[in-house]
């Protein structure tokens, strides 16, 4: 009985470490920042869940495993938000994004001319208002 628990825990921890190795390899293999972020998000969610589930199996269901569940819940809420914010930062800061991935025509032109898209939209809205008032 105990040996099954050990084998299950070892399998889960080994799976988690394998995912972490794959994520680390992905950090070095890709060329662009957004691809590397995709690989890092793998480690933040799947790898830590498998490892911590292995530890939960290894130590039985008591207060310690409740704390481990709490860590998993917190990380599964917080890590995707981190990835979202970092992707937002990258899209704002990167000036050569139109060469690296597909963008809509308007966004591509704005990136090439280094103009802010929200300002262009505001100018367009003002022009439309003036035209409607003029009529």
């Amino acid at each position: 009985m105990e040996i099954f628990r050990f084998i299950l825990a070892a399998l889960l921890i080994a799976g988690g470490l394998f995912v972490a190795i794959v994520a680390c390899k992905g950090m070095f293999k890709f060329r662009f920042v957004l691809n590397r972020m995709h690989a890092a998000a793998l480690c933040d969610t799947l790898s830590i869940m498998l490892v911590l589930m292995g530890l939960v199996v290894a130590c039985g269901f008591n207060l310690v495993s409740l704390k481990l569940f709490l860590i998993i819940v917190f990380l599964w809420f917080a890590s995707p938000v981190s990835s979202h914010l970092l992707a937002l930062l990258e899209v704002t800061i990167n000036e050569h994004l139109h060469e690296q991935c597909d963008m809509t025509e308007a966004k591509r032109l704005c990136k090439e001319k280094q103009v802010d898209l929200s300002e262009v939209k505001k100018d367009l809205a003002e022009e439309e208002k003036e035209a409607a008032n003029g009529k």
Binding site: M27, V33, R36, C43, I48, L52, S82, E90
Partner: peptide, 27 residues
């Protein structure tokens, strides 16, 4: 990492790995 975002991503991943190490140490 040539960009700023690279560095923040790598630091975040290092933090996650450290969390895993601490949990294993706790057991």
């Amino acid at each position: 990492g040539p960009e700023v975002t690279d560095r923040i991503v790598a630091t975040n991943m290092m933090g996650t790995m450290i969390i895993m190490i601490i949990c294993v140490l706790a057991l």
